[in-house]
Design a protein around this nucleic acid. Sequence first.
DNA 1: TCCTGTCATACCCGGCGGGTATCACTGAAG
DNA 2: CTTCAGTGATACCCGCCGGGTATGACAGGA
Lengths: 287, 287
Amino acid sequence: MDTLETRELRYFMAVAEELHFGRAAERLGMAQPPLSRAIQQLERRLGVSLLKRNRRGVSLTGAGEVLLHEGRAALDATTAAARRTRRAGGADGPGGPRNRLVLAVKAAASHELLQKLLDAYAAEPDAAEIEVLPSGTCEQGEMLRDGRADVALMHAPFNSLAGFDSEELLTEGQIAILPAEHPLAARTTLSLADISDVPGLPLARWSRHGTFPPGPGPEIHDQTQLAQLIALGRTMAVFPESARAWLWAEHTAVPLTDAPPVVTHIAWPAHSRSLALAGLIRTATRL
Amino acid sequence: MDTLETRELRYFMAVAEELHFGRAAERLGMAQPPLSRAIQQLERRLGVSLLKRNRRGVSLTGAGEVLLHEGRAALDATTAAARRTRRAGGADGPGGPRNRLVLAVKAAASHELLQKLLDAYAAEPDAAEIEVLPSGTCEQGEMLRDGRADVALMHAPFNSLAGFDSEELLTEGQIAILPAEHPLAARTTLSLADISDVPGLPLARWSRHGTFPPGPGPEIHDQTQLAQLIALGRTMAVFPESARAWLWAEHTAVPLTDAPPVVTHIAWPAHSRSLALAGLIRTATRL
DNA sequence: TCCTGTCATACCCGGCGGGTATCACTGAAG
DNA sequence: CTTCAGTGATACCCGCCGGGTATGACAGGA
């Protein structure tokens, strides 16, 4: 009566994101008419109008917006349940359940901290197996939400910790990474104002879900590419201090005086109850 | 292929909680054989064994435990999506969407604070309508999770704030409420040790989801009942200081020196994006 | 005025979710 | 040892509903 099936949610999310029944149906691998009908049934059962069918296209009503947000959370929770159950499956070996934790880490961030954490945890008695999952720019939160990961290293203020439990691990300042021969590289410190709008040296822009923020700088996909472009004098970038570890000879790092400090946290879904996770967190906070 | 329908989740939760196919089927309003088949299909599709069918009864595997926890979160998120969507429905009146917020409050707690909050918010321009939803003992968290409420007043350390965003509103000490004629009522302060195991004056036990913690004290369902039993000299209770507001003449309140302070928070689901909610939170933090 | 793009309707079909009857197994009682 | 009670699994059937195809209704643009 009031149950809202996963399939209906999937269908509605597709339509709400595409704002076009035809494209949504294609994305779902089905024909358009049954999709239309499914959405109508959903609206009838909820007793709520979700979409405004205008002459030419579709738009969301207020209730539709609500369902778009809440439905995303619900779908994520559902796929998370499936993934984590699968991962736990067949793990009941002799000597109790064999646990395995997936740790999401922003690729090439927190090298040193991560190394220390993994070493320290591996030394624990009955440590679970840790799978390190490289994550794209700032998407550790999504990975925790949809179950691809069980725990993550996140970096405030870039990642939002909303909805997770977390423990603080490390606070560090930020540095500007410049071509060594650039005039600014001679400075001992810099401010954010100093490095904005430097002629001929725009800030690099990182990919986020395949798109890029606006701006003049080059579009960056991975760290090697960035390092090379800096070495060539084409761009600059701002990083936490620990990024000094991968500097090239052609790079110079200059501390930023007024950049907000970066705080590395270990974060996990608030409802987690896993023993292996608790052990990992305990190890992390002792570092 | 990997989708995990809501219906399957509901079925599995019922079996996992009852640990008995027959009773679970009855609870679901269906016959036992299709339920057995549905669970088998679920296990096949997940590629995981969820239940151990022993001779005489059923027990959970490790993966089953995981699905029990994660599935609860997923089901809550799904019903929350349905409820919040319904609530937002038909609210697109003239002059923009008419919002309405449901605020969960532990019955008869934080009277004064609540009154101030409601008054202050009602005075705001374009304030949404606030529905105050009385909640049972410490179940505000569940109400936020399953969508019965949008925002709640919660009391640490009794409520867990895990998984929610929150702002601190008020910190207060705790008091023991005693029959006025009891010897202990003459004291100016008490410690927790003083009031444990007082002969003839056991601590009252509150209902929680219909069950009661073990102990000698009377089982309490509502505040009036408690007040009466204290006035009759049969029991005592511990409350935050603000409970002084409803003391009877036959009651005496004595401060507890070593009870943990009670912190009242306003809390909401971390993913909320509602403007009305933001306004209410802003008002609350300004009190 | 046509044509195009869009969503809704009409109709059909196959699969699957659900019901009833029954089986297979085991543990306890006699 | 036999029997019986209680459990989950299997066999089989049926009706509903989710999905497909064909088509309609309607609004804009050339």
